Every structure is written in structure tokens, then in C-alpha cells.
Simulated scan of single mutants.
Amino acid sequence: MAKIKIPPVLRPSVGGEKEVHADGGDVGAVLRALAEQHPATQQQLFGADGSLNRYVNVYLNDEDVRVLDGLDTTVGESDTLVILPAMAGGGA
């Protein structure tokens, strides 16, 4: 079961947990399992077409999955996924 580190902004959607575990053979399956366990995360993670929202960054063992195989990136039982929402800032 892969470990998923949850950022503070998503913690209310997973009962306040900092880490959760989910099964899946690839990043997409693990994130879909997370969304099944915690339905409030579905719209936060995925767009209407099932793709990862563009403002959500996912890292597998410190490697951005977008430069790997995206949602098809293979996940092992001892792997860690980190979800990081993109932060926007700016000055006036």
C-alpha cells in the first residue's frame, strides 16, 4: 500500500490526517483509491475528464510524476506520493 502525504489544504477532506495509505499499481489508481476513501478529494484532485487538475502537483519519491509517466507511473508498495497544490502569488 502506497503512502500519500496530504498537504494542509486537503487535510479537512481526509479527516485531518497528514498521511493516508491507498492501494494501486500506478499513480492514477492510488489517487482514485484515495478519492473513493475520501470523496471530498475527488474534485480537488481530478478534472471532469478524469485527468489530474493542472494546479495539483504529485511527486513519487520526490520525482514529479509529470516528467515520468503521469498518472500511469508505476507505484510500489513502499513508495510515497506527495500531493502539492500549486501556489500562486503575486505582488501589487
Rank of each mutant, 00 (worst) to 15 (best):
M1P: 05
I4R: 01
I4K: 01
I4N: 00
I6E: 02
P7Y: 07
P8I: 11
V9R: 10
R11Y: 03
P12C: 08
G16E: 08
K18F: 08
K18P: 02
V20S: 05
H21R: 13
H21W: 05
A22M: 04
A22Q: 10
A22P: 04
D23Y: 09
G24C: 09
G24L: 04
G24I: 08
G25N: 11
D26A: 13
A29F: 02
V30N: 09
V30I: 08
L31E: 02
R32M: 12
A33C: 14
A35E: 04
A35K: 06
E36V: 15
Q37L: 07
P39K: 09
P39L: 09
T41V: 15
Q42K: 15
Q43A: 15
Q43F: 03
Q44F: 02
Q44S: 14
Q44K: 15
L45H: 03
F46T: 05
D49E: 07
D49M: 06
G50V: 13
S51K: 13
S51F: 03
S51D: 11
S51H: 09
L52H: 11
N53H: 03
N53Y: 00
R54A: 10
R54Y: 05
Y55Q: 13
N57A: 13
N57I: 10
V58K: 00
Y59H: 08
Y59Q: 06
L60G: 00
L60I: 01
L60N: 01
N61R: 10
D62H: 11
D62G: 08
V65K: 00
R66M: 05
V67W: 05
D69V: 05
G70V: 00
G70F: 01
L71Y: 00
D72E: 14
D72N: 14
T73C: 02
T73H: 02
T73G: 04
T73L: 04
T74V: 13
G76W: 01
G76Y: 02
S78L: 07
D79N: 14
D79F: 06
D79E: 07
V82W: 00
I83Y: 01
P85C: 12
A86R: 07
A86S: 09
A86G: 04
M87S: 10
A88T: 14
G89V: 09
G90Y: 09
G91L: 11
A92F: 03
